[in-house]
Design a protein around this nucleic acid. Structure first.
Lengths: 224, 224
DNA sequence: TCCAGATTCAAACGTACATTTCAAACACCT
DNA sequence: AGGTGTTTGAAATGTACGTTTGAATCTGGA
């Protein structure tokens, strides 16, 4: 059955879990090839370098995800009137959950990898994603902008990155959080449950009134 | 003037900036001692190991910050009626900004280090902070609970971790974000500006209505 | 001045890493 | 069965790391 599995797949499968748990720089090719039960040199033979392996691991998910997201974004952009923010955020749910068909626990692994990519390495994965999929993500920014016309562009920029941080950090520490939640609240939590809890939090944060901080003696400077 | 600066201080000063920018594992003792202009062996002589240096770097700030936070929390806890959420979150601002008196750019550096601590290393700094300052942080949880009595404890648990993620991720990638913001919106961003932008986002997210996600065909299971 | 303890220094140690090399094994086609 | 191009294997290369060592240097009190 599983007898002759592709070496490349064995490497990708082993690498994605180790990368997600330990980070890119803290996972050695020796660990990966040991778990994958392939020769050390196989990584460089099939992928060229560790850097390219990291990109290949992410590409397996990005390829699927971004096509689906693009469809959803185009659907919403075709609407006559602006969509509300919750609807816009909700389009991520199904495409993300469908990553589970790419690989078992694919959604969790992908989001953890994304988190690692934004904190571990200095910019190189950030650039990779933006270079390949920036046009798709721009559509999302446009949708949010349409649904929150009162938000200045700069405020929106920060809040979208705050939201990215929320998601990415939550997923990176998802395992620990789920354990505590189960112990303290005897409440089973799967990845879908976490996503459903995230949506209202993100929607409220992004759409928050701009200056709700009541600290009159410390105010922002008024412009350029 | 600066003639004979303490070796330990020179190491701490060099280490904190490099750690904040590059992360703990990706900063070598050779880089640190090179910048500090001290001998490589000085780190192990004065601090014992790299791990203990990391903790010493953080302790310099945590010692100051946690005393101040404890004061603020006690003050709010003594109030007759529950404080509103924005007030509770706002108590972080002054203690955090006072870290600038520990060292130039202390606030930014500390928050970046905190971000690194939660993503770089697996748990060892998490444990260190919780072990030394868990009792202080419990007071904060209590305050939030009092200000949001309608929130179930489990929901609060998740949202506080979402918020931790927001802060930590934002600070870990602070430099990159600030650069983009300046380039795209020609807007200078200092650490205080980011904090002021964070507060409304966090307050709105934590206090968000519990089931604002309008996806009737996907609902959470109703509990045990 | 001299000496003991604290500090600095250059050098080395052992380990782990990504990558390369080249021969052996394999797969596939005729 | 034979031969070619692809894939695997064990070993080695060179580099970087954290830590250790032991002698040299500094420092302050007698």
């Amino acid at each position: 059955m599983v007898a002759k599995q592709n070496t490349q797949q064995k490497i990708l499968d082993a690498a994605q879990s180790l990368f997600a748990e330990t980070g890119f720089n803290d996972t050695s090719l020796r660990q990966i090839t040991s778990v994958a039960e392939v020769n050390l040199a196989a990584v460089n033979y099939h992928f060229g370098s560790k850097k390219e392996l990291i990109q290949a691991v992410l590409q397996r998910y990005l390829r699927v995800l971004m096509v689906r997201l693009d469809q959803e974004f185009n659907r919403l952009l075709a609407a006559q009137q602006p969509n509300n923010l919750t609807q816009v955020l909700a389009v991520f749910v199904k495409p993300l959950l469908e990553l589970n068909s790419v690989h078992h626990n694919g959604t969790r692994i992908f989001l953890q990898l994304l988190g690692r990519g934004y904190t571990d390495v200095q910019g190189h994965l950030r650039w990779f994603i933006n270079h390949h999929y920036g046009r798709v993500l721009d559509k999302f920014v446009l949708l949010v902008q349409q649904s929150c016309p009162q938000l200045p562009a700069s405020e929106l920029f920060w809040r979208l990155h705050f939201s990215l941080g929320t998601v990415v950090f939550t997923m990176a520490s998802n395992e620990a959080l789920a354990e505590i939640a189960e112990a303290d609240f005897s409440e089973e939590v799967d990845i879908e449950g976490v996503i459903q809890r995230l949506l209202p939090y993100l929607a409220a944060g992004i759409a928050a009134p701009v200056f709700s901080c009541s600290h009159p003696q410390q105010q922002l400077r008024s412009g350029t």
